[in-house]
């Protein structure tokens, strides 16, 4: 098993998130947490996909991990969770799928060759749906912590209790 190339991806996930953090003008104290969160989220996605788990589910798990970490870092570094979570999930945006979908749409709107039309159509729809569901998984995963703790503000969430709901 080749773990090193997988682990290496963590570095790049983090760097990509830092770039977006700077673009969104995040406070300096949040840059390191953003790097760590993006690396952890990205790596969990990559590991799950390594075990042949669907890309949408893998992305959702990664984004959920980022969502929970963002609550924790929000308490530690005193900034709202989205400030950490939004730059950190952006490296998981499905750029290649979106590009293939766009290319497919261009082919479909151009000269239509009946023999290849079905093939291109099915590929384009497949890529397009993946893009849509991955984007929803990203946004939904980040929102999970606030949804299951049923709080309006992350400040009301007591860290100790996360993950250990007692009846």
């Amino acid at each position: 098993m080749d773990w090193l190339p997988l682990l290496e991806k963590g570095i790049w996930f983090g760097l990509a998130a830092i770039g977006f953090g700077v673009l969104f003008n995040v406070p300096k104290r949040t840059l390191l947490p953003i790097y760590v969160m993006a690396a952890i989220g990205g790596l969990s996605k990559v590991f799950l996909m390594h075990f042949e788990i669907n890309v949408i589910l893998a992305t959702f798990v990664g984004a959920t991990a980022i969502g929970f970490l963002s609550i924790w870092f929000a308490h530690v570094r005193h900034a709202p969770p989205p400030v950490f979570a939004i730059p950190a999930v952006i490296p998981m945006v499905p750029g290649i799928f979106a590009y293939r979908m766009m290319l497919g749409l261009m082919h479909l709107s151009g000269k239509i060759d009946p023999t290849t039309f079905d093939h291109i159509l099915s590929e384009t729809v497949n890529n397009g749906l993946k893009v849509m569901f991955i984007l929803m998984a990203l946004a939904g995963g980040v929102g999970v912590p606030l949804l299951i703790t049923r709080k309006e503000s992350a400040k009301d969430i007591k860290i100790k209790r996360i993950g250990f709901p007692r009846g």
Binding site: L15, G19, L23, N25, G42, G95
Partner: peptide, 23 residues
Amino acid sequence: PHYSRWIVLVLVGLAGASFCRVA
């Protein structure tokens, strides 16, 4: 103050390169 323009350009450039590596 915002981040200085050149820092933003370089870091976003690196982010693009990282995207490429991840893909």
